[in-house]
Design a protein around this nucleic acid. Structure first.
Lengths: 143, 143
DNA sequence: ATGCTAAATGCAACTAAGTTGCAAATAATA
DNA sequence: TATTATTTGCAACTTAGTTGCATTTAGCAT
């Protein structure tokens, strides 16, 4: 993605524009799947980025709702661009994550309102305000 | 729960009956919510149980599908009895976990077939074989 | 352009859940 | 009661992620 577009995303969220932030956000914008700290480090190769700096960069992006975290099956954090189109404007909206049981990649999908509401009445006395659906199966590349 | 009943559950799953296993399983059977390693240790007080032994005991129970693991928001494992009634016979069936955003307790619910199937067609090209639904909100005690 | 200041970066040390290895103890079976 | 595989307990380890602190830099005002 265009560097100036990325710089503007950072500015829009009151984040200082630094080379590391631009590169990290670029990596995340380029990926169809959620990425681990190690994945991102790998894709930044050439430039050495300190691991703490990368963790802090990712946490900043999360706080600003540019990206979100999702835990993989080993309970490590993966990071993915926050899908935030007109259909899903609220930053805290329901998510669906597809976990491929073969390649272990995680894909983030927006969740339609209808699908999302289907289980909100599961149990009497419990008030459901949000949800994450974790779908397991095989992604297109692994079938 | 009756000690002999617990001993029989262990025997049914080809696990040696030991005092620790009986006590741990008793704690899990008594709880409406998923419990952490620390929660279980606390509820075993009086008897000192080595932390490694407890982890191994819990992992054995998981392997035998007596219990299952669910990660809390801090990504620590919680352990809960595997709901395994006639409506949800397969050990690997879809789960719903209710996470109270106030007290952080996690409740496990069985998931009805209908609710479970509602999102299985979310994206073209992805084959969904199982799912976990994580519902966030307020439990009855926290409203 | 230059200097100022709060924020960002890098390095070292730390934290804590969970695991591994191995020796000692014990449940199940004969 | 003796045997043996399994379980238990202790110590040491692993590793993702965090904290503290000194140094550097982006953004802004002069």
């Amino acid at each position: 993605m265009n560097t100036e577009t990325i710089r503007n995303i950072l500015r829009k969220h009151s984040l200082k524009v630094t080379p590391i932030r631009v590169q990290v956000l670029n990596v995340l914008l380029d990926s169809r799947v959620a990425l681990s700290h190690a994945d991102i480090t790998e894709r930044l190769d050439g430039e050495h980025v300190d691991k703490v700096t990368l963790y802090r960069t990712l946490n900043h992006f999360c706080e600003k709702n540019i990206i979100h975290k999702v835990a993989n099956e080993e309970r490590n954090w993966l990071y993915a661009i926050h899908i935030d189109d007109e259909t899903h404007p609220e930053p805290d909206h329901a998510h669906a994550h597809f976990i491929c049981d073969d390649c272990e990649r995680i894909y983030c999908f927006p969740l339609t309102r209808e699908a999302g509401s289907s289980v909100q009445t599961v149990k009497q006395g419990f008030l459901v305000t949000n949800q994450e659906i974790r779908l397991h199966g095989l992604c297109p590349s692994c079938q």
